[in-house]
Write a protein that binds this DNA or RNA. Structure first.
Lengths: 195, 195
DNA sequence: ACCGTAACACTAACGGTTAGTTTTTTGAAA
DNA sequence: TTTCAAAAAACTAACCGTTAGTGTTACGGT
């Protein structure tokens, strides 16, 4: 009953994937802004309303699996080795994420994002949501016990690091440089009373 | 000839102001999302195309004088007293900006911004532009001589401080708390070779 | 075999935005 | 004053993303 037995879920997932694949292909072929929603829907052979039942907006077609990013950040906090300090764990994760998105395979997609104003804006507000999740994870960790403001601030800084490093000439070096700054900022926020 | 003699400029500015005033009034009266562009234009007695020749988007109607913010940030850097260190100057400016926008008079507008998704997103991407300007000002100051990455990072942090402090329970205290973190982050970025 | 419902389709519209074109206003030269 | 170029504004008509309203089909449990 509550476990719809397979076929429906698979068909739905297939439809979603077909839409996302078609969209990304068209966007890369002819440019994000030059391809309309009606066109994507037609090419994927679905109705426009169906497309919007799978994706909240045109931009969301491009950032299909953005929940990965959010989960990887929060898990870098909640799932780090016992006793491991926060900042190195986050640096490791950001490093991996930056390496992944500056890899050659991801280059065309990233170029597309940079070239469209609406995609850039969408990504930024997406990152802010991620920063809020990260802040919640940090604030919830009893080993850290920072103020709400300190948690939110560090979370923002970490997400900033991702965005800034990606755009730097040497992304890996930029991650290190920015994380030295984040580390220092974190140090001056002493743990609260019952550390 | 190349100096259009007054009246034209004044009339243009008056039209712009009338549009902005009308828009803000309607937005506050009935809600940002509930008021359409065609309605604003009709009430201001201008054509829709005229409205869009003065403002790039509906959201821009609300953040009419956002260049103030940008200029105040960059001038806090370029116009600070000789020998005055960067971070205190920026903290002072951010303090003033936060105080200004959390004042009672600004409360209705700010509430409106918070209640609309598109306004929130617009503001965030606006702040990023401001951060880039600030980064340029920092990078251009020979007394500071930091790397491009360090400049951009600190600029982001400072703009983050504004956004985060505004939302904090005690905005003034939050500015101080966040700026202690920023100060520490700044310290670890030693000045370059010819300091 | 039957029914509830999840997935999808279709039509039609709404609201922001822009292109294309034409009219009015303005500043200054002739 | 008349004239003229250009700026400002108007008007029309659309484009595009998005949503509401309303069926229709395909599943899955009973």
């Amino acid at each position: 009953m509550t476990v719809p037995s397979g076929r429906r879920e698979r068909k739905k997932a297939a439809t979603r994937q077909k839409i996302a694949d078609t969209a990304l292909r068209l966007f890369l072929e002819r440019g994000y802004d030059a391809v309309g929603i009606r066109e994507v829907a037609a090419e994927a052979d679905v109705a426009v309303t169906t497309l919007f039942s799978h994706f909240a907006s045109k931009e969301a077609l491009v950032f299909e699996q953005d929940e990965d990013f959010e989960q990887r950040l929060t898990r870098a906090v909640t799932g780090r080795a016992p006793g491991e300090p926060l900042i190195p764990a986050l640096r490791r994760e950001i490093r991996a994420l930056v390496r992944h998105c500056t890899a050659d395979a991801a280059a065309p997609v990233w170029h597309m994002v940079e070239s469209s104003r609406s995609l850039r804006e969408y990504e930024e507000s997406m990152r802010l949501r991620h920063a809020e999740s990260l802040a919640a994870a940090i604030a919830a960790d009893p080993d850290l016990s920072r103020t709400a403001t300190a948690s939110r601030t560090i979370a923002r800084f970490v997400v900033d690091a991702y965005t800034l490093a990606r755009e730097a000439a040497d992304p890996e070096a930029a991650v290190d440089e920015i994380f030295r700054m984040i580390e220092a900022a974190w140090e001056v926020t002493g743990p609260g009373p019952r550390a």
